[in-house]
């Protein structure tokens, strides 16, 4: 069982550089073919400062800032018990290659379900760029099967 003492835990903020090669790789993995996601020259021609990060990219930043195994270790659990329950994104601005995004994540709730055979660990994460603009927020529900 995951202890409730972890509610309110804030992970140390981590600043992650948004790499062009990584965005291309992600676009390939998702089958995104629009040039603003894959071709830096086309992005520049479109007036963008870099490749545009796809909508689910904050999830990638979240993992780069904090490996899942670290989260699982903090909670005293194992990866094999973990399922992804929800991932919710709110957008305030774009993320481009060349940006530096600071990821601030905290555990906001731990909920027991089905007499503790399932536990939901809820986290909220803010993504703040190098201009001190909050560009996105996520809410994640990690499901642990006991």
């Amino acid at each position: 069982m995951i202890e409730k003492k972890h509610i309110g835990h804030e992970f140390s903020p981590v600043t992650v550089p948004v790499e062009e090669g990584r965005l291309k790789f992600l676009a390939k993995a998702l089958g995104m073919t629009q040039e603003i996601y894959t071709d830096p020259d086309a992005a520049e021609a479109a007036g963008l400062p870099g490749l545009l990060a796809p909508p689910t990219y904050p999830f990638v930043l979240e993992i780069d800032a904090l490996e899942l195994v670290d989260l699982v270790n903090l909670l005293g659990e194992t990866l094999g018990k973990l399922l992804h329950g929800e991932e919710n994104f709110t957008y305030h601005g774009p993320i481009y290659s060349g940006d530096e995004i600071t990821v601030r994540k905290k555990i906001t709730d731990i909920i027991d379900k089905k007499e503790g055979t399932l536990q939901f660990v809820i986290s909220q994460t803010e993504f703040i760029n190098q201009h001190d603009v909050k560009v996105a927020e996520t809410l994640t529900n990690y499901v642990f099967r006991h």
Binding site: R22, F25, K28, A29, L30, V60, I63, D64, L79
Partner: peptide, 10 residues
């Protein structure tokens, strides 16, 4: 591909 690109190495 998605494992490497996303960083989700589970």
């Amino acid at each position: 591909l998605y494992c490497g690109a996303s960083g989700d190495h589970n």
